[in-house]
Amino acid sequence: MFPYSKYLRTNRLPHIWCTGCGCGIILKAMLRAVDRSGIDRNTLIFVSGIGCSSRTPGYIDFDTLHTTHGRALAFATGIKLAKPEMKVIVLTGDGDACAIGGNHFIHAARRNLDLTVILYNNRIYGMTGGQPSPTTPYGEKGTTAPYGSIEPSFDVCRLAAAAGAVFVARSTCYHATQLDKLILKAMNIKGFSLVEILSPCPTYYAHLNRLGTSLDLLMGYKRNSIPVEKARRLDPSELKDKIVTGVIYKTERPEYFEEYHKLQQGITENGRLR
């Protein structure tokens, strides 16, 4: 038994998420990762934007900040600049990070800000009523795309890696034990680290696309996911509609806040560089 209640605002439960929503599974994995990391809870801060995923900070007993739509990364940057000793974790959704906050997302990755981003990808805008998001696959339905979306979708992991993130991982709600390992790894990285987690949305995504219950979606993740080590040996055509899980990309680059503080210390009183 894991003492989840230690980290929860239990008076706020039951949470707002629908029956069978994956957000609760991700929240639990995150709490296990935080517990395992051994980081003092007073040095952790959780920032979120708007959306189903972004309701998470309301239920956890840490320093939390619930901000405007898509701007979680902008607020997190401010926190990290003002308090570099804090560990900042950004909880965001696919619409929040890739559409409304798309620019913040790519530029946070480009600057290599020392933030851990946990991206809940349910492939639809859940809270606003089921509109297709940038990660809704081509041809899948949403409330404003009754004949199927005609837009191709983003591969969030490739986007982040191309923009400059130093750690990019993907998993699903089915792989609940892998989640805490990946989140823990991401937390220990100095730089922009992203964990994309596929999460079932029974109310809109599964319902509109007739994919069955939330449980059917979870089992679909089990059937369609391939570990990244195996995927590297396969032909790209074999990976169509597959979910590649694990640490997708890892590299090392100078981190923004360190560079910034180095620059700050290098400047003398008369405003010149030493």
Binding site: M1, H15, I25, K28, A176
Partner: peptide, 16 residues
């Protein structure tokens, strides 16, 4: 403890 692992609602606990 698989039930506890997958419960999204913090509703089930398995105790030894």
């Amino acid at each position: 403890q698989l039930c506890e692992l997958y419960c999204p609602d913090f509703a089930i606990e398995v105790e030894k």
